[in-house]
Design a protein around this nucleic acid. Structure first.
Length: 492
RNA sequence: GGUCUCGUGGCCGAGCGGCUAGGCAACGGUCUGCAAAACCGUGUACAGCGGUUCGAAUCCGCUCGAGACCUCCA
């Protein structure tokens, strides 16, 4: 087992793969930035959550007790970094004439539904920003006590240059404060901020602002980056193992988290930073603001301009697993249909495991194969390599079925256990959901009748009748597959 | 403009100094009345140019191309 636990994780902080050693033996604290629930999650958002679902699942598979925390941002971030602005949830609420919490509730439910369709495991704790206003206020006070934040007109800002004097602002994203200064051309001389790099911890709310809470600085709302720091600290401690999120959150969001946490507690909050890369569409990042998106619902229904037909969510999951989480992945109809075929081949091989013949000897390297499953995943969760090895296993299984290779009962039991663990528990794959309809039993009966009649025609070598039935059914979208055990049919 | 990443066979996508991933498609075969399906087999590709090295897709430089972050975004 020791060998299996040599897990290496690419740490964005160092830019290297590092041996994973949890802060507390056998326990792992995992925090992932969740969605802002003012809109439907698109496929790009889903990729990140599916990537970290893989991380969560594999850590569990290795035997770690994992506490997985993923927040719901329901307080609303501002539309931009301007002093004035409306938060997204309030804006949506105003446009749709809804209570902000109605907006939040609607999209949170949708988010959960979608991730369940992708067979993601729920996190252990899913805290909301609005449910942790007190913790956020406390954290601001801690930072102010250290002298690293200041209040102006009921708003509180983090003092980046002052923090940078004794720490390294930019260590995660590889930025230098001087370069950031040079790049920020602050036209607005009226800014409350001492430095353009300073960011809000608390914002004063105008009377017309809908979402606001009382604080020592008056009515207001928390800043953009604070909730993650407050909630990760509360549920995982001042220092925890893994913090994940999309690549686009690296700067400034995660950089600010490090600064806030470090300022408040005196220690760096995270040991391993992980960033999942973007899902692209037409070669460009999927993004809500640019409209270059595909929604899961459009994918499952086939109602979109990108895909020729609907796809089962689990196919999309498999497609995502076929690329490494740190690489960009381009979404296209061709790529997805290729994944679909490969997926079915894999699942068919898994399904025949219980029926394979056993022998007195095993004529291939079962243990070596299993070891490769682990080494793939231990190398920074390399799921595409794992899948390549699983297809190697598929070939062996087919050879066993054809009598070209042999396996003992003990080895088959072991191999089955490991393959199933990796396919179902680690990759989180499952058999596609069968569409059930109320009249399915009737159709089943009718098809049996038709196939029996056709079988009789075939026994009489009445090929024209046999072929006519097959062709007519094909026109209706039903494909017949003849085999030695009789014909089987599938509906497109 | 600044910082950074990437460019792999028809497509997707691993690898990141020597041991020529994998999937899909294509082609050949087995099976089949024919077909489909299924299974088996076949492909030395790494943007271009130059350099380092016994050896480079992998390291260095330049050129071209694509993308990300620097403003909300997973």
């Amino acid at each position: 087992m020791s060998e299996r636990e040599q897990l290496y994780i690419y740490n964005s902080l160092s830019g290297k793969k590092e041996l994973f050693e949890p802060i507390h033996q056998n326990f792992v604290g995992l925090y992932v930035c969740g969605p802002t629930v003012y809109n439907y999650v698109h496929l790009g958002n889903c990729r990140t959550f599916i990537s970290f679902d893989l991380v969560f699942r594999y850590l569990k598979h290795l035997g770690y007790k994992v506490r997985y925390v993923r927040n719901i941002t329901d307080a609303g971030h501002l539309e931009n970094d301007a002093e004035e602005g409306e938060d997204k949830i309030s804006k949506k609420a105003r446009l749709e004439q809804l209570e902000p919490m109605e907006v939040v509730q609607h999209y949170t439910i949708d988010f959960h539904k979608v991730l369940e369709q992708f067979n993601n495991l729920p996190p252990n704790i899913e805290p909301t920003a609005t449910g942790h206003i007190i913790e956020q206020i406390e954290m601001i006070q801690q930072i102010m006590q250290k002298g690293l934040a200041y209040e102006v007109n009921g708003s509180v800002y983090f003092d980046v240059p002052k923090y940078n004097a004794s720490a390294d602002y930019g260590e995660l994203s590889g930025r230098k404060i001087e370069e950031l200064m040079a790049g920020s051309r602050e036209l607005d001389g009226q800014s409350e901020k001492k430095s353009p790099l300073d960011f809000a911890l608390w914002k004063n709310a105008k009377p017309e602002h809908i979402m606001k809470w009382p604080s020592p600085w008056g009515m207001g709302f928390p800043g953009w980056h604070l909730e993650c720091s407050a909630m990760s600290t509360k549920y995982l401690g001042e220092q925890f193992d893994i913090h994940g999120g999309g690549m686009d959150l690296k700067f400034p969001h995660h950089e600010c988290e490090i600064a806030q946490g470090h300022a408040a507690t005196g220690v760096k909050p995270v040991k391993y930073w992980m960033h999942a890369n973007m899902l692209t569409l037409n070669g460009k990042k999927m993004s809500k603001s640019t409209g270059n998106t595909l929604l899961p619902a459009e994918l499952f229904s086939g109602e979109n301009s990108v895909l020729e037909k609907p796809y089962d969510p689990i196919i999309v999951r498999f497609f995502i697993m076929q690329a490494h989480y740190r690489s960009t992945l381009d979404f296209s109809s061709d790529a997805l249909s290729a994944a679909e075929k490969g997926f079915h081949r894999l699942m068919q091989a898994v399904a025949m495991l219980p029926e394979l013949p056993v022998a007195n000897d095993t004529t291939f390297d079962v243990n070596g194969l299993i070891k490769r499953f682990y080494s793939a995943m231990n190398d920074d969760f390399n799921s595409p390599i794992l899948i390549a090895h699983l297809f190697e296993a598929v070939k062996y299984l087919n050879d066993i079925k054809d009598g070209k290779l042999f396996i003992t009962q003990a080895d088959l039991t072991l191999l089955s256990k490991e393959i199933k663990a990796f396919v179902f528990d680690v990759l989180g794959l499952q058999l596609p959901e069968k569409q059930t309809s109320s009249n399915e039993a009737e159709i089943e009966g009718m098809m049996d009748l038709i196939l029996n009649l056709r079988q009789k025609a075939r026994e009489n070598k009445d090929w024209s009748t046999s072929d006519e039935i097959r062709d007519k059914l094909a026109e209706l979208g039903i494909t017949l597959k003849d085999s030695k055990d009789g014909a089987k049919w599938t509906k497109n």
